[in-house]
Simulated assay, not measured.
Amino acid sequence: MPFIPPLHHDRFDYLPITRRALPDWPGGARLAVYIGFNLEHFAFGEGLGARLAPALPNQPDVLNYAWREYGNRVGAWRCLELFEQLQWPVGALINTSLYDHCPELVAACVQQGHELIGHGHTNAECQGHLPEGEERALLQHCRERMLRESGVAPAGWLSPWISESALTPDLLAETGYRYTLNWCHDDQPLPMRTRGGQPLWSVPYPQELNDIPAIVARQMDAPAFAQMIIDQFDEMLQQAQAQPLVMGIALHPYLVGQPYRLRHLRRALQHIAAHRSQLWLTTPGAIAQHVAR
């Protein structure tokens, strides 16, 4: 009986990183480093959300909701102060419901020159189950709302909870997005195939160097997560001597914005910034724009 090959996404072909030719980053840098700064809003009493403690059987779940809300009220502002001190532009992943809930926070990101990236309407929901028309409407809504409120339409997208339908890359390209952060399969940006042939780049987004899997799932403490960032950077800086690479750091302010964690995050980011002359400290959108040229 013949064996049938497993299903394949057909978005890109297999190509080992040892067989790539990618130009250097601007200034001759070999390692591009960016921060994906997740600014999220959650529904009160329903929907998805990371948890500090097991959810109670009854709603509203005040403990976990309030813990996440700390990020928008306090943690994000402390992180923005740190990014400004380091003169480090970041990619701010924005739920559009923030424009209704805490518009000052999004405005501060714009004022400091950070890139705004589409991140759904709220992280209490995911998009992978939506019919094609509803998913398209969500993507269009986020672009239009961000353009109207902040004066810039996002070039990139990260789905809440990395939730995709089979058509998400096609719909992203068709609604004007130029790159996606949903795929974590490489250390270099790669082009993806879309049904209409529109360009869509995959920019590496970390699921390992990410505070939710590390701190919430694996229960790493703050010093260990900071050391994880440092170790990743030191190793990738060495690997990048052979070819240009991308290192992303995924952060959520309700986690790393807690004061005792922020102290260790500062140590890790200062370690990276001390090598600024060898690096491209940048944003995902700038990476996508560079390779698209």
Rank of each mutant, 00 (worst) to 15 (best):
Y205H: 09
R263S: 10
R11H: 12
L80Q: 09
D61Q: 03
E134D: 15
T175D: 05
M220N: 03
F42L: 05
M247F: 02
T175L: 07
L279F: 01
G71V: 11
I94H: 00
H264F: 06
E84T: 14
D13G: 03
L130R: 05
A273R: 09
P191T: 12
W183M: 12
G75Q: 03
I287P: 09
P103F: 02
L251D: 02
H8I: 11
D221F: 01
R266N: 04
A108D: 04
Q207M: 11
H264K: 09
W157F: 13
D24M: 01
D231W: 05
Q239W: 13
H275K: 11
W280G: 08
T180K: 06
A32H: 08
A226D: 07
C184M: 12
L56I: 08
D231A: 15
R78Q: 14
R78Y: 06
W183D: 13
Y14G: 15
G36H: 14
G113K: 04
M236N: 07
P60Q: 08
R263H: 10
E144T: 02
P131K: 06
A226L: 05
A66T: 15
T168A: 03
P26A: 02
T283M: 10
Q238A: 11
L116Q: 00
Y260I: 06
A107P: 07
H119Y: 08
G28Q: 00
I94V: 14
A155R: 13
Q258G: 03
P54H: 06
G197A: 09
T282Y: 12
F83T: 07
D10I: 01
Y177A: 04
T283R: 10
G151F: 00
L139Q: 01
A217P: 02
P206A: 13
P2A: 13
F42N: 05
S150Q: 00
M228V: 01
T282N: 05
R263I: 04
L138W: 06
L98F: 09
Q232K: 11
R51W: 01
W183R: 14
H264T: 04
A250W: 06
T282E: 09
H114N: 04
L86A: 09
P103M: 04
L279M: 06
L31W: 04
D187E: 13
P60D: 02
D13P: 10
I117R: 10
S150P: 00
L209Y: 03
Y177P: 00
Y177H: 13
D186L: 07
M228K: 07
H8G: 05
D211Y: 11
A292W: 05
H8Q: 11
C79E: 11
A273I: 04
G75N: 08
R267V: 09
L209Q: 11
T180N: 09
Q87T: 13
Y254L: 01
F37L: 15
M146P: 05
I229K: 10
D231Y: 10
H119A: 07
R148S: 06
C102N: 12
A76E: 02
T96A: 00
H271M: 08
L39T: 12
G176S: 09
L48F: 14
G128V: 07
D186H: 06
E235K: 12
Q219L: 14
L116G: 00
T122A: 07
G120R: 07
T122G: 02
L7H: 12
P284M: 01
V33D: 08
I17P: 01
P154K: 15
L139C: 07
L86G: 09
E81N: 10
A43W: 03
L86S: 03
N38E: 13
R30T: 11
